[in-house]
Simulated scan of single mutants.
Amino acid sequence: MSISKILVTAASGVLMASSLTTFAADTVYGNTFTAGSSSTTESIAGTTVTFTAKTGPDLDNLTNGKFSFKPGQDGYQGVGVSPIKGSDAHVGEIDKHEWIIADFSDARVVSNLTLGLLFDGPEYNDHHETALITVTFFDDTVSTFSLTAIGESTATWTAPFGTVTNLSPASYDMGGVWSLDNPFGDNAVKSFALTSPANVKQSDFTFYSVTAVPEPSSYAMLALGLGLVGFLSRRKANRLYA
């Protein structure tokens, strides 16, 4: 086989491998988790992500919890956490000392994160409810950001990137659903953890969905493959008509 054919074959392989994942933007919905399970592994954007329900005071002191649900509002139903044993007055919510942790098996960029049941009060005697999101990037740096409902259709997001959109007003019998587009920028993540702050009274929420795409380097690989195939094709055509 000639060198040019080898290069074409290699470039085509790069192109095919990249195209299988690069254009895949997948969404995982919390309402598909199995109630009572402590973890579930889902396929997302060409890799796997394991979601785990945990309870405990902080990320270094956790035990297994279980996924639980409450009726959806305004057509939105997310997933919460309950203890493995004992009663729980807040089934289907992520309260203080309750966590949902997502661990990615390969680098992925979170393009959207949607959370529900974040209210600004006084619908459930809750006021300015906050979701804490701790993310571990693929360079092992760790950051914690917060999403706080400050009105029926307004919320604050403390990260330097991302856009908050209200999908359902945070009023009684409605969803209080908030969409975070590009919440961590174009930075690939290893994991993220969702919990409520321990120092905010009655703050709670649900995990609705997450959408992920391959990291930017995958797009660079695809562009390289396309460019190499185009270059070799033009070179072959020039030889034919020389």
Results as ranks from 00 to 15, higher is better:
residue 66 K to Y: 02
residue 26 D to M: 03
residue 180 L to D: 00
residue 78 G to N: 09
residue 242 A to G: 14
residue 203 S to E: 10
residue 72 G to H: 10
residue 5 K to G: 00
residue 177 V to W: 07
residue 168 S to W: 05
residue 89 A to R: 06
residue 157 W to Y: 10
residue 168 S to H: 03
residue 73 Q to M: 13
residue 102 A to W: 06
residue 196 S to E: 09
residue 48 T to P: 11
residue 175 G to F: 05
residue 75 G to D: 12
residue 129 E to L: 01
residue 232 L to I: 15
residue 188 A to F: 07
residue 91 V to M: 06
residue 156 T to A: 09
residue 216 P to T: 08
residue 13 G to F: 02
residue 72 G to V: 09
residue 213 V to L: 12
residue 183 P to N: 06
residue 78 G to T: 01
residue 166 N to F: 09
residue 76 Y to R: 11
residue 19 S to E: 00
residue 205 F to T: 02
residue 32 T to G: 08
residue 72 G to Y: 08
residue 91 V to Y: 03
residue 94 I to G: 05
residue 13 G to P: 03
residue 38 S to L: 04
residue 226 L to G: 14
residue 166 N to H: 03
residue 16 M to T: 05
residue 195 T to N: 15
residue 151 G to K: 03
residue 30 G to I: 00
residue 61 N to W: 00
residue 236 K to N: 12
residue 138 F to S: 13
residue 118 L to Y: 04
residue 141 T to F: 12
residue 97 H to G: 05
residue 14 V to H: 00
residue 108 R to P: 11
residue 213 V to R: 15
residue 191 S to M: 04
residue 96 K to Y: 13
residue 116 G to D: 01
residue 162 G to M: 00
residue 136 T to P: 04
residue 57 P to W: 01
residue 108 R to S: 14
residue 26 D to A: 14
residue 208 Y to L: 15
residue 35 A to Q: 11
residue 38 S to W: 03
residue 129 E to Q: 15
residue 242 A to P: 01
residue 64 N to Y: 01
residue 210 V to Q: 02
residue 134 T to E: 15
residue 241 Y to I: 15
residue 233 S to H: 06
residue 190 K to M: 02
residue 75 G to A: 09
residue 175 G to N: 07
residue 30 G to W: 00
residue 77 Q to A: 08
residue 94 I to F: 12
residue 165 T to M: 07
residue 27 T to A: 13
residue 44 I to A: 07
residue 28 V to D: 07
residue 155 A to L: 03
residue 104 F to C: 02
residue 173 D to C: 06
residue 95 D to K: 05
residue 23 F to Q: 01
residue 87 S to C: 02
residue 5 K to N: 10
residue 71 P to G: 10
residue 175 G to C: 08
residue 160 P to S: 02
residue 140 D to A: 13
residue 214 P to A: 06
residue 12 S to C: 09
residue 92 G to A: 09
residue 227 G to S: 15
residue 127 H to R: 13
residue 52 T to C: 09
residue 212 A to H: 05
residue 237 A to C: 01
residue 183 P to W: 08
residue 97 H to S: 14
residue 98 E to N: 10
residue 142 V to P: 12
residue 172 Y to P: 01
residue 99 W to R: 00
residue 98 E to Y: 05
residue 199 N to V: 00
residue 153 S to Q: 13
residue 9 T to Y: 11
residue 132 L to Q: 14
residue 115 L to R: 05
residue 186 D to E: 11
residue 12 S to G: 12
residue 202 Q to E: 14
residue 7 L to V: 14
residue 120 D to I: 01
residue 194 L to K: 05
residue 238 N to Q: 15
residue 58 D to M: 02
residue 34 T to G: 10
residue 162 G to Y: 03
residue 123 E to G: 01
residue 95 D to V: 12
residue 143 S to N: 15
residue 117 L to K: 12
residue 122 P to L: 06
residue 241 Y to F: 14
residue 67 F to K: 02
residue 101 I to E: 15
residue 98 E to V: 04
residue 4 S to P: 05
residue 58 D to W: 02
residue 50 T to V: 09
